[in-house]
Nucleic acid binder design. Structure first.
Lengths: 217, 217
DNA sequence: TTATTATGACTGACCAGTCAGTCATAATAG
DNA sequence: CTATTATGACTGACTGGTCAGTCATAATAA
C-alpha cells in the first residue's frame, strides 16, 4: 500500500531550504511562490503539497531559526564550567550559528517585519526568542557574579545589552556585507566583559580563542 | 489670479507623517496607499500630488530618519570636551532620538528589509548610515584612547560592537515593547565602558546621569 | 487498475497608479 | 458689494497587471 514513495518530510525540507535561499536573495515581500518552486526545481502547485500558504513558508523559516536558537541555548546548559566561561561560549556559539547560516540569518529581517504585529502566542513570536536569550544570559550573569567573576548587581538590562550587541552586529552585517560577522564575537566579548576604559585588570589581555564552537544540527 | 494656495511642503510633511504612523502600525508591506490617505484625511489620488509612488513614501521616511541620524552625529561634533564624554553623549543622544520618535523607529525594520537589496548608491542606503555612525564612534574611541581614558588598540571592531549594542537593543524593543528602550542607554554605556568583569576601577561606580540629551530638529 | 504525486493553466481578489471631472478660492470686472 | 472667471487642489471610479491559491488532468509506481 504505497505507490510512488516520496519522503514527505525530506521534500518539505528541500522546499523550505529553497524558500530560505529565495527569501535571502530577494526578501520575502518580493518572493513569489513561483520563484520558490523554480529554485526547488518543481512546479508551483507542488509547493502547496507541502505548505498551506506563502505565509506558512515564512513561518517554517521562523521555526527553523527558532530551533537553531534553542540548540545554542541548550548547548550552554552544560553545567560544571564557570558561568563566565559558559557565557562566552554562548556568545561565540550564537555568532557562529548566525555566520554559518547566512541565508537563514538574512531572512531574519523579514521575520522581524512579520513578527512585529503579532501578539504573544502568534505564529512568529520573535519576542519569545529574545526573551529566552535574555533569560539565559541574565541567569549566567548572576551566577558569574556569585562566583566572583563579574561585578555584582548585573541583571536584565545588562543581559539586554549583551544580546543586543549580537543582534546589532547582525544588523550591520545585513546592511553591509563587508562587515565581518564571525570576526566580531571576540571584540564583542572583549568590550562587554572587559569594557573599553583603561585596563585595570592584573590578569593581562583577555584570551583570544580561535572562535567557532557552534555545532549545528 | 491665485486660487486656493496650499503650502505644498507642509502638505507633503503631513502626508509623510501619516504614512509613518500607518507603516509603524501595520508595516510597510500591509500598508495600502488608501490607508495612508485615510490617515491623512485626504483622498487616495491626492497622495500622488505629493509623492510619485508608494516606494517614494518609504524613501521619504528613510530621508527623515537619515536626517535625524545626521543631527545626532553633528551634535557630537562639538570639540573641547574629552572624547569619552562626547562618546557617552553620542550614545545617549542616539538612544533618546530613537525613543523620542517611536513611529519613525518602528519603520526602521521596513527600511532594513527594503535596503537590503540595494547597492551602494541606492535609494535606501542604510549601510551608509551605519558606516557614518561607526566612523564617528571609532574616531572618538581612538581619541579617547589617546587621551588616556580608554585602553589602546580600540578601533573599527569595537565601534561596530558599540553601534551594534544600540541597534540590538532597538531590535528587542521592536519585537517586545515591554523592553524599555530609553532606560537602556545607561546600562549600555556601563557595560561597554566599564565591562562586566569584577570592578577594578578605583573611581567608584560609573556616574548615572539623568539621561536624555537629544534635542531633535 | 488504483492510489498517490506532480503539474501548470486558470480564476478571482487585490491594489498601484491614472485621469476626467468637481469644487473652493481668489482675483478681477462691473 | 456681487458676479464672473481663472486656477489648481482635490477626488474617487476605473484600469491593467500581478499573484496566491485551486483543480482538472497527467504521470508514475505498486
Amino acid at each position: 500500500m504505497a505507490p510512488k514513495r516520496v519522503d514527505r518530510a525530506a521534500r518539505r525540507e528541500e522546499i523550505l531550504s529553497a524558500a530560505v535561499r529565495v527569501f535571502a536573495r530577494q526578501g520575502f515581500a518580493a518572493s513569489r511562490i513561483e520563484d520558490v518552486a523554480a529554485e526547488a526545481g518543481i512546479a508551483k502547485g507542488s509547493v502547496y503539497l507541502s505548505f498551506d500558504s506563502r505565509e506558512a513558508l515564512l513561518s517554517a523559516a521562523f521555526e527553523r531559526l527558532s530551533e537553531r536558537s534553542a540548540t545554542v541555548l541548550e548547548q550552554t546548559a552544560a553545567d560544571g564550567e564557570p558561568a563566565l566561561e559558559r557565557l562566552s561560549g554562548l556568545v561565540r556559539s550564537a555568532v557562529a550559528m548566525l555566520a554559518d547560516e547566512p541565508d537563514l540569518t538574512r531572512v531574519m529581517v523579514d521575520l522581524w517585519a512579520a513578527g512585529r504585529h503579532t501578539g504573544d502566542g502568534a505564529p512568529f513570536d520573535m519576542a519569545a526568542v529574545y526573551r529566552a536569550y535574555r533569560g539565559v544570559v541574565a541567569d549566567l550573569l548572576r551566577r558569574a557574579a556569585e562566583e566572583g567573576d563579574l561585578r555584582p548587581g548585573v541583571g536584565e538590562p545588562e543581559a539586554t545589552v549583551v544580546v543586543g550587541a549580537i543582534e546589532g552586529c547582525l544588523v550591520q552585517w545585513l546592511m553591509d556585507p563587508s562587515v565581518r560577522l564571525a570576526g566580531l564575537a571576540e571584540p564583542l566579548l572583549d568590550v562587554c566583559l572587559s569594557g573599553l576604559r583603561v585596563s585595570r585588570q592584573p590578569s593581562g589581555p583577555p584570551d583570544r580563542r580561535p572562535s567557532e564552537s557552534y555545532q549545528g544540527p
